[in-house]
C-alpha cells in the first residue's frame, strides 16, 4: 500500500485560534442562514405588494406608528455599536468590555420590549391584509431571533461579571464573531424598518 499517512510528532492541540476560527466560520454560516430566513419575508413583502390581491395588500388605516419603528431601529443600532466596541476592546486584550456588553444587552432588550408595546398600540391586526401579515410575521420572528442572539451578548456580559477585575485575560470565546452576527441582525432590523415603515 502506498504511503497514505504518517503521524505528526506532536499531539492534538486545540488552540484558542482554532476555536476562534470555528466560531468565526460558524457565525458566518448562521448569519447566512438568518439572511435567507428573513429573505423569505422580504420576498413575501414585494410579491404580495406587487399582486395586491383583491385590493387588500394595504387597506386604508394600516399604518404602523412611526415612532416605535424609529425607537426600535435606533436601539438595535446602538446595541450593535456597543457590543462591537466591547468586542474590539476585548480583542486588544484590554478590560473594560463588560460595561458596553451590558449596555448592548439592555438596548437589545429595550428593542424587544418596544416591539411588544407597539403591538398593544397598533391600529390594525394580523388579519388586516397582506401588509399586516408581513408586518406581524416579520416583526414577531425578528423579536425571537433577537432574543436568541442576545443570549450571546448575555453570556459575554455574564462571563465578564464572573471574572471581574481580570477581564483582559478572561475574554469569552467567540466574542468578535458574536458581535459581527449581532451587527448583521441589527442591519436586518434596520432593513425591516425601511421596508415596513418607510416604503
Amino acid at each position: 500500500m502506498p504511503d497514505v499517512t504518517s503521524q505528526a510528532p506532536e499531539s492534538y492541540a486545540e488552540t484558542p485560534e482554532l476555536h476562534e476560527r470555528i466560531d468565526r466560520i460558524g457565525f458566518g454560516l448562521v448569519g447566512g442562514a438568518t439572511v435567507m430566513f428573513f429573505f423569505g419575508f422580504v420576498f413575501a413583502y414585494f410579491y404580495l405588494r406587487s399582486l395586491d390581491s383583491n385590493g387588500l395588500w394595504r387597506p386604508a388605516g394600516v399604518e404602523p406608528p412611526s415612532g416605535y419603528g424609529i425607537a426600535i431601529a435606533a436601539a438595535l443600532v446602538l446595541s450593535a455599536l456597543a457590543f462591537g466596541y466591547a468586542a474590539r476592546v476585548s480583542k486588544q486584550g484590554r478590560g473594560g468590555w463588560v460595561v458596553p456588553s451590558g449596555i448592548a444587552l439592555v438596548l437589545g432588550l429595550f428593542a424587544c420590549a418596544a416591539q411588544a408595546v407597539e403591538y398593544a398600540h397598533i391600529p390594525f391586526g394580523p388579519q388586516s391584509g397582506g401588509y399586516a401579515s408581513v408586518f406581524f410575521g416579520w416583526t414577531i420572528l425578528y423579536v425571537v431571533a433577537t432574543l436568541l442572539a442576545l443570549y450571546r451578548v448575555e453570556i459575554a456580559f455574564a462571563a465578564g461579571l464572573r471574572n471581574r477585575g481580570r477581564e483582559g485575560s478572561a475574554v469569552p470565546e467567540g466574542f468578535v464573531p458574536g458581535a459581527m452576527y449581532w451587527g448583521l441582525l441589527a442591519a436586518i432590523g434596520v432593513l425591516a424598518w425601511i421596508i415596513l415603515y418607510l416604503l
Partner: peptide
C-alpha cells in the same frame, strides 16, 4: 393568528 399570507381573499397569495 389569522394572517393571510396565502389567502387571496385576505390580500395574500397561494403562489407565494
Amino acid at each position: 393568528v389569522q394572517t393571510s399570507f396565502f389567502l387571496s381573499s385576505g390580500g395574500g397569495s397561494p403562489y407565494l
